[in-house]
């Protein structure tokens, strides 16, 4: 088991290195001059040239990548003399559009995304698994049909549509909640909840749908298994059979997919954050795209990649924990 984890982590690091190379090269190949973006419209060529040297854009692409990679581990210094400044490790570079270290930007926006992801995740797991279980236990009855309808609607609606629909109906039409205005939970928990409840709901409605289907089908499949019949034949009560036999079997694929979904959300829920103007990492990424802010773009992409890769490793390990058949001896 230990060797298995070490091996997986080793490959995860290799994979991340590859992702960083590809991301860096891809974005560097864009037809924009990052140095030109460092000053406003009335820029003079000599300032651009100076900035290019200051930021290291004069060097070869391989060297640039090396500096970037080194920066992640040891931090990075820019400029000389009076104008010198540094981004401490882990440094993903410096954003001239926002005049801050990329790490600082990510550090500020990430908690918002994390709150959004965690809350939405809890909500959708409860709604999705709960409604899926109810549907499976009432197969063919109205509960099942309702869940089926919910699934069909949920998986086919686009995020921005549901987001705007929720926003419109709850805030403008019903007027139950004020327009979301993000405040840190450490500052004002009530205001924070007011701002988060709608984005949570939006993400939950969308993701729960596929979990409803997954849970329902998984449970129905498990109910036909011989081992479930043996559980009943032992004289176990219905609730024990459902919990230890049916749910246990249905849970394995759910956990796998939930892990990956959660990780991709952590990398920034771009549309949801935009609709509800949450200052999260998704919004940061969008802004960097609009402003061609390469360091931020590379930074946010890499952070998302880290989450996805890590989630894959964790899911693999969880898989072994949940299912003894894939446990490595």
């Amino acid at each position: 088991m230990f060797l298995f984890v070490v091996r997986r982590l080793f490959f995860a690091v290799l994979l991340l290195l590859a992702v960083s190379v590809v991301t860096y090269l891809l974005f560097s190949a864009l037809p924009v001059d990052p140095a030109a973006l460092t000053c406003g419209k009335n820029c003079k060529p000599d300032i651009i040239a100076a900035n290019r040297i200051r930021l290291g854009y004069d060097k070869s692409i391989v060297e640039q990548y090396w500096l970037f990679l080194k920066g992640i581990f040891v931090g990075r210094d820019y400029g000389m003399g009076q104008a010198a400044f540094s981004c401490p490790a882990p440094s993903f570079g410096y954003s001239f559009a926002q005049h801050e270290c990329v790490t600082t930007l990510i550090g500020r926006t990430f908690p918002v995304t994390a709150y959004l992801s965690i809350g939405a995740f809890i909500m959708w797991m409860i709604i999705g698994v709960g409604s899926g279980a109810i549907a499976a236990l009432n197969k063919g009855k109205w509960q099942d049909r309702l869940a089926n309808a919910f699934t069909a609607v949920g998986v086919s609606l686009p995020t921005f549509y549901v987001g705007l629909l929720v926003l419109f109906s709850v805030v403008i039409w019903l007027g139950i909640l004020p327009f979301p205005d993000y405040v840190s939970p450490l500052e004002d928990p009530i205001k924070f909840l007011n701002a988060m409840i709608l984005p949570w709901l939006t993400l939950a409605i969308l993701s729960a749908a596929s979990y409803t289907r997954l849970t329902r089908n998984g449970m129905l499949e498990a109910m036909n298994e011989d081992f479930v019949r043996l559980g009943v034949a032992k004289g176990l009560s219905r609730s024990v059979v459902l919990r230890k036999y049916v749910m246990r079997a249905a849970m394995v694929p759910i956990v796998t997919i939930a892990g990956l979904d959660f990780a991709s959300l952590l990398g920034g829920a771009i549309i949801t954050e935009s609709v509800f103007s949450l200052p999260g990492m998704g919004k940061l990424a969008i802004r960097s795209v609009v402003e061609s802010d390469l360091p931020v773009l590379v930074g946010t992409t890499l952070v998302s990649a880290v989450f996805i890769v890590l989630a894959n490793v964790i899911v693999d390990i969880m898989y072994g924990v949940l299912d003894p058949r894939v446990r490595v001896k």
Partner: peptide
């Protein structure tokens, strides 16, 4: 009590 046909699927794998 009952013994099932397929011992491969009659036991709870978890």
């Amino acid at each position: 009590a009952m013994v099932f046909q397929d011992p491969m699927s009659a036991l709870n794998p978890y």
